[in-house]
Simulated scan of single mutants.
Amino acid sequence: MEESLYTQLTHPASPPAVSWWPPAIGWWLLGCTVLLLVLLIPWLLRYARRRKRRLNRRSRQMLADISATLPDAQWLAAINISIKQRLKQRGNDAATRLFGEAWLDFLCSRSPDVQRQALQPLAADLYRPHIELTRAQRQALLAEVRRWMRHDDV
């Protein structure tokens, strides 16, 4: 009897296949996010490149603004102050308190190919009362500071 009742039952129909359209809200959000990223990433990269170029231009101008006719002690102090001001603007306050060999170590650690000997006047000679740098030493120091700034993006 139970078997006959079972055979008399109407079996449920299988549900219709799930359609792929319209997608669920999560897919809409994912698609909008990807589209937004595709549109924003090139703009952000361009903005970062422009900002980096502008900062590099300012750094080069900062060195160009230092008069070559200054006495050696004032010239070295002006370069040192300019570098530290740029580091402070970038948020590296700890480096602005360094001096002497610790300052030179910091400068050399930030750029692997920097010539320590050319930057030596920023460490040792900066605090001497009477400094005399040759024209070649000044040019070598400026070249190393420029190289350091290019590498460190100061």
Rank of each mutant, 00 (worst) to 15 (best):
L40V: 13
T33P: 01
I81N: 11
D93H: 08
Q117R: 11
L35D: 01
L45R: 15
L9S: 06
T10N: 04
K84G: 01
Q139A: 14
W21E: 05
R128L: 15
R135W: 06
A17K: 03
A136K: 10
R54L: 13
I41Q: 13
D105G: 00
R49Q: 08
R116M: 03
F99S: 10
P16N: 09
L87P: 00
G100C: 10
L40H: 02
A77T: 12
P16T: 05
P12R: 05
P71C: 01
R50Y: 06
P129G: 04
I79K: 03
S82K: 15
D105E: 11
S82C: 06
H130I: 09
S67E: 07
H151T: 10
S111C: 15
Y127F: 11
R90A: 15
V34D: 08
L87G: 00
V18K: 15
S67G: 03
S82D: 12
R53E: 08
T69K: 15
R54I: 05
L76I: 05
A68R: 08
H151E: 12
P23S: 03
I66W: 01
Y6L: 15
V154H: 00
G31N: 07
Q137M: 15
R90V: 09
A136R: 02
Q61R: 11
L87K: 01
T69L: 12
R116T: 02
A73R: 15
S111I: 12
V38R: 13
S4P: 08
I83M: 09
Q137V: 13
T33W: 09
I83K: 00
A77V: 04
W103M: 04
V145E: 09
L30Q: 07
W21Q: 03
D65V: 03
L70V: 10
R50A: 15
N92A: 14
R116Y: 07
A140F: 06
R86K: 08
L35M: 09
R116F: 09
P42K: 04
L70H: 12
Q89T: 03
R60W: 02
S4E: 07
P22K: 02
V154M: 04
A95V: 10
Q74E: 08
P12G: 01
R60S: 00
Q85M: 02
N56W: 01
L30T: 10
A140K: 04
A123I: 02
T33Y: 06
T134P: 14
Q117C: 02
A124G: 09
A77P: 00
P16F: 07
A78K: 14
I83N: 00
R46E: 10
L35A: 13
R50V: 11
P42W: 06
T96R: 11
Q139G: 04
W43R: 15
I25K: 13
W20D: 11
R146I: 00
I66T: 00
R110F: 03
N80H: 15
L119P: 00
L36I: 02
W28H: 06
